[in-house]
Simulated scan of single mutants.
Amino acid sequence: MSFLKKTREGAILILTMSQPETRNAVTGNTAAAEFEQACAEVQADRSIRVVVITGEGPVFSSGGNVKDMQKYFQQQLSPEDIREEYRRGVQRIPRALYNLDVPVIAAVNGPAIGAGCDLTCMCDIRIASEKASFAESFVKVGLVAGDGGAWLLPRAVGLSKASEMAFTGEAVSAQEALACGLVSRVVPAEQLMETALGVARKIAANPGGPLRMTKRLIREGQQQSLESLLEISAAYQAIAHLQPDHHEAVKAFVEKRTPKFS
């Protein structure tokens, strides 16, 4: 059974995690391979301008499948085997999602636990239902974040809040997530998808090329010096200036009309 359900609304691709019986756990199934494949398809499809990720059922994602973790001691796997399983498994998700050039919105419909919390941090924009909660809960089961959470979460909420969440493992409510900047807005559950799609439509109304380059600049800006980013920005801008969509936007502005992007 497929983990991701894919639907399209024009230039928007909606990815719905659709295994509510496991609370949309991202391990012990094909989630990693499907996220990787979906991201590869998005990268190759220039008609897709924004991706929305949500969960089916009352939970966004419970993260790792704890029941499945019993195999590590039942099968007496070595540390080397487990390390490779993480590399070939769940770590494929942050590599694929975080490096995706297309803007990604997480429509968080319910609890986002452990790797599920980290999955939201792999997205660019997080919109939460009032029923959502977030927990960096690895210590609660005697583990560490094996999916990059120690890198992702501090960049979303800052070092102090990320440390509090990771060291206690306690969940924060949607409103607390809003207060610390983990999400950009909180809406009633029944309005979640329409709100997320409303933001997605505003993004998708813009030309695809500059959107992808803008996201790449934001990603690079988290790691590069200002001087390095200015150089990359100048190069991207040189490309953008020569694109038909820029010419159309300038012409439409002068003519006082809505631009028609390719």
Rank of each mutant, 00 (worst) to 15 (best):
R126Q: 12
T195M: 07
T214I: 01
T214Q: 09
A162K: 10
I232P: 00
V157L: 03
V187T: 11
A166Q: 11
A162H: 07
A200H: 13
H241G: 00
H241V: 07
E136W: 13
G209W: 04
A135E: 03
M213N: 06
A162C: 07
T195R: 15
G149W: 02
K202A: 04
A205W: 10
A205E: 13
R216I: 03
Q224G: 00
S137R: 14
S184N: 07
A204C: 06
T195N: 10
E227R: 15
S137F: 04
H241E: 12
A238E: 14
M213F: 07
V139T: 11
W151Y: 13
I218A: 10
E136D: 09
M193W: 12
A196F: 02
G181W: 10
L159A: 08
T195K: 14
T168W: 03
Q191V: 01
L197D: 01
A150D: 13
R155W: 05
W151A: 09
V199R: 12
M193K: 13
K140Q: 11
A132W: 13
E220D: 10
L211H: 09
I218N: 08
R126E: 02
I218Y: 10
A240H: 07
K161L: 01
R185S: 08
C180P: 02
A204G: 04
E164T: 13
I127S: 01
P188S: 05
V141Q: 02
R219E: 02
G169C: 06
F138P: 01
P207R: 15
A235W: 02
A177H: 12
I218M: 12
K161P: 05
Q191P: 09
L211Y: 08
Q191T: 07
A204F: 11
S228R: 15
V186H: 02
G149P: 08
F167E: 12
R216Q: 11
F134S: 03
K140R: 15
Q237T: 13
G149S: 08
L153A: 00
L211F: 06
S184C: 13
A177C: 07
M193V: 02
T214H: 09
A179E: 13
A238R: 15
G148W: 13
L153W: 04
T195D: 11
M213H: 11
R155E: 05
R126N: 12
A177R: 15
A204K: 15
D147M: 14
L192Q: 08
A156T: 14
T214S: 12
W151V: 09
R219L: 05
A171T: 10
G149N: 03
G209K: 15
A171M: 09
I218G: 00
V187N: 05
R185Y: 01
L159V: 12
S160C: 02
S137N: 13
V141H: 02
A162W: 09
G209P: 00
M213S: 03
G142N: 03
P210C: 04
A238C: 02
L242P: 00
G181A: 06
E176A: 12
E170Y: 14
R216M: 09
G146W: 02
R201A: 02
I125P: 01
Q223I: 05
S228Q: 15
R185N: 08
S225D: 02
A156G: 00
L153Y: 04
V199D: 01
A156I: 04
L197W: 04
S163P: 00
L226P: 01
C180K: 13
T168I: 11
